[in-house]
Design a protein around this nucleic acid. Sequence first.
DNA 1: AAATACTATATTGTTTAACAAGATAGCTAT
DNA 2: ATAGCTATCTTGTTAAACAATATAGTATTT
Lengths: 116, 116
Amino acid sequence: MSIRSQLLKGILDGCILAVIAEESVYGYELSRKLQQVGLSDVSEGTIYPVLLRLQKNGMIEGEMRPSDSGPNRKYYDITAQGEEALEMIQEEWRILVNPVNELLQRGRINERETDD
Amino acid sequence: MSIRSQLLKGILDGCILAVIAEESVYGYELSRKLQQVGLSDVSEGTIYPVLLRLQKNGMIEGEMRPSDSGPNRKYYDITAQGEEALEMIQEEWRILVNPVNELLQRGRINERETDD
DNA sequence: AAATACTATATTGTTTAACAAGATAGCTAT
DNA sequence: ATAGCTATCTTGTTAAACAATATAGTATTT
């Protein structure tokens, strides 16, 4: 198991909720989107259980829709409760990132990029 | 269980290694240090198992030393192997932080503080 | 039309992390 | 001695990530 998959623990729910909050997606598409943004180790075996759990907990709602070219797809939308949860996760993430950056990059030149 | 404890998953090893890389610490002291930097939910029940696991895996070495005022303390130092592992974790963290920030803060004004 | 490949969802079983709770024990103060 | 603080360690629970696999519809090739 890669180190990154360990780091992933606990933030995957938030990432998935964030994507679904932007637009309806289905699982197969979601796994590709996450890979595109750089979360390259996330496979279907990981994503589908997360989606089912988020649905069970009322964070998202799934709806089967036919596809023009392939099997049916289950599109997920975020619920009001899911949006609340996402905001809490975003808040917790902001609280966590600074101390961890501080610890892990202490004594290191802050090689920032020009992307903000 | 708090959301933050979920977010913690997978990054605690790195945080602990980072502290020990700076100086010898013992578990009880470490838990206070982590709380000071903002990782406030980390208790002894969490830290001691991590320390024992890191020691078992050769990342750190523990040595019992007497205390002036209280029971013996087990001071930990990082090993060469632990330093390598820490560098890998730091690298993985850097790779992970940007995509996750991107996802979780998309569409949000980047309310940065003046602390850098 | 049969076989293969791709799209798509779901489940099962394994490993491992965080953690609450509690056991153990030494030192300090009353 | 009793209580409280310091300090380490263990046990048992919950839950997350994930590999592996099952299932099935659609598309492509032969």
